[in-house]
């Protein structure tokens, strides 16, 4: 995994979240993912196929997901995590990865992305792309979120 690829994803996430009205996020860490278990109940996955192959997963806790969806819909309060917030988060992930794909294309890396899918569950363990996964952690007013990037170059 090349660092110049990671930067496209990080800057796209920061730009897109700012654009949809989420408070300024701060990057709080960049690590290898060491455990299969995850504390995050909400995961939005997008597949990448092309010059790089892999999956990108945006994951967070349910409370954070509700806060973000509420912010995206102009402050509308969200009581239940139903269709509406789920599709908002799918769209957020789609925008981030779409932007990343166009940034990657500018540096000569062609990728296609699949539509997003949201996975919601408890006590989850996961293995993304069966390869080493990089985790970029962000923190903001809405809560913490993680961008898991697992690509085979």
């Amino acid at each position: 995994m090349d660092v110049k690829y990671i930067n496209s994803f990080i800057s796209s996430l920061l730009e897109v979240t700012e654009m949809v009205g989420i408070s300024k996020l701060k990057r709080i860490g960049l690590n290898r993912r060491e455990h299969l278990k995850t504390e995050n109940d909400v995961n939005v996955i997008i597949g990448l196929v092309g010059d790089i192959k892999g999956n990108v997963v945006l994951s967070m806790q349910e409370a954070t997901a509700k806060n973000i969806a509420s912010r995206m819909m102009g402050g509308m309060p969200i009581y239940e995590f139903d269709m509406m917030p789920k599709s908002a988060l799918c769209e957020l992930s789609n925008m981030i990865n779409g932007k990343s794909a166009s940034k990657l294309e500018k540096i000569g890396v062609r990728v296609n992305i699949t539509p997003p899918t949201l996975i919601h569950g408890y006590n989850m363990a996961s293995l993304i792309s069966q390869v080493e996964t990089l985790v970029v952690a962000f923190s903001g007013q809405e809560g913490n979120l993680e961008l898991n990037i697992a690509t085979e170059d």
């Binding site: 996955i45 196929v49 192959k53 892999g54 599709s87 996975i119 919601h120 363990a125 996961s126």
Partner: peptide, 20 residues
């Protein structure tokens, strides 16, 4: 058509949401 690498999830009360 081409494939992305598989991702595996296991847990309790899982549901997947996709617009289509």
């Amino acid at each position: 058509i081409r494939l992305s690498p598989p991702s595996i999830f296991t847990g309790e009360g899982m549901s997947m949401f996709n617009v289509r």
